[in-house]
Design a protein around this nucleic acid. Structure first.
Lengths: 233, 233
DNA sequence: AAGTGGTCTAGACCACTTT
DNA sequence: AAGTGGTCTAGACCACTTC
């Protein structure tokens, strides 16, 4: 199970094994005790605690003194559109408006951190909440990270889930800029709002292990949408 | 220095001592080595590492293998308006438009987590960037937390700094909602924009040890302002 | 009473940087 | 060569929960 000869430290090997176990378990499930893990993997308790500590920081496990360790809710993944709408009590749906694969120009390459001219997948979508238009989105994904994305992706499904399940890309950080202003005619039409109506312009990048995995420009109807953020120092 | 009889664990006592040291040191300063701290405070290396580990997670310290431990940049405090503007390359200033102390109505009490009728300080400010109006803000602070806030606060100075320095209130979490829409006449006038110009409406709450310390409604000119966010899962 | 996580000790060897 | 952080061991006692 744990190979002392492998260059990866024992506690990280153990963490990976625990993560695999956790992912198959329901929330609040009790996992084996620290001392039991020591016996089972033949490592010291310090090593077990080092592995567990990290999972606790990552909010995958909770310690319960006197009881044991239980599986915690998955950490806040980046808000998918569907989750976002459900939190507001609305149903979410999505219409694909088109896909293509282009070569990155200088600006796009700069934002994605790829070489200029590198192939990039583009996904154009209309987001609906309770059946009414809420946003239009244009997503860019470096083709090197997900070569046959459009063949493997379930149309209308979550882009994040496809990246994670089909290509093993788990996003870990991101950045976002938010602007507001009047909609252009091109934007107003699919959103079903008057020309010049107020919209949010969002630009979001999400990163996986230091590389930009996804760049999305969204235009949200400001009359229907409100952004909620939790802040941590 | 470290008292084994006190109920607080040694590693937390040590963490507090280190935090005090760190706060007086410039960024990238080298602090004593782990083994030196063991000798100096007469604790085991495990205990030292436990204290340091926490400060590393909190981004107050960085470890440099082979070198030592250095003071890291202070963690992202909540963006003060001044910091926000400086990041955009603009100078920031502030004009106090008035202060008063009121009794919380039901809505305000709900948002602040105080009892209805509890006294609340209100601070009304105009924010300027490069000398031009950028935002108007209305801040509410439970008077119980900062009784003589208006006597002790430096006019035009940072509210957060005053709460921290004068009342020991350090904010640890927060939430924020962002809307966009046309400005009302009341808002447009001090911001020096046309009636109906696009503005951001921000509502931010910051918490200190579980209690709301501050509630601020801001109206930002959308033609000059852009929101930047770092995202973590 | 037995088991759990929480804290703590006193060592050890490694890869790395500095001198 | 000396010092540093990174990893690891094999114990220990405590407060707590469960039986």
């Amino acid at each position: 199970m744990i190979d002392p000869s492998v260059p990866l430290p024992k506690y990280l090997q153990l963490r990976a094994l625990l993560l695999d176990t956790i992912s198959r378990l329901p929330m609040d499930a009790l996992i084996p005790s620290e001392r039991e893990l020591c016996r089972r993997f033949n490592v010291s308790r310090t090593t077990v605690r080092q592995a567990v500590d990290q999972l606790v920081v990552e909010e995958r496990l909770r310690r319960v003194p006197g009881k044991g360790m239980v599986v915690a809710r998955p950490p806040n993944r980046f808000q998918s559109f569907a989750d976002d709408m459900h939190a507001l009590g609305m149903s979410a749906s999505c219409v694909d408006l088109g896909t293509q694969t282009i070569e990155a120009d200088a600006d796009l390459a700069d934002l994605l951190g790829t070489a200029p001219g590198a192939p990039v997948h583009v996904l154009h979508r209309l987001r609906l909440a309770d059946g009414q238009p809420m946003a239009v989105e244009r997503s860019y994904i470096p083709a090197a990270l997900a070569p046959d994305l459009f063949e493997r992706r379930r149309p209308g499904g979550s882009l994040f889930k496809a990246l994670e399940r089909e290509f093993g890309i788990v996003t870990d950080t991101g950045d976002q800029t938010i602007e507001a202003g009047p909609a252009t005619d091109n934007e107003a039409e699919p959103l079903d709002i008057p020309q010049g109506g107020t919209v949010f312009h969002l630009r979001r990048r999400t990163f996986s292990r230091g590389a930009c995995a996804e760049l999305t420009f969204s235009t949200y109807r400001a009359d229907r949408y409100r952004i909620h953020l939790g802040l941590k120092p």
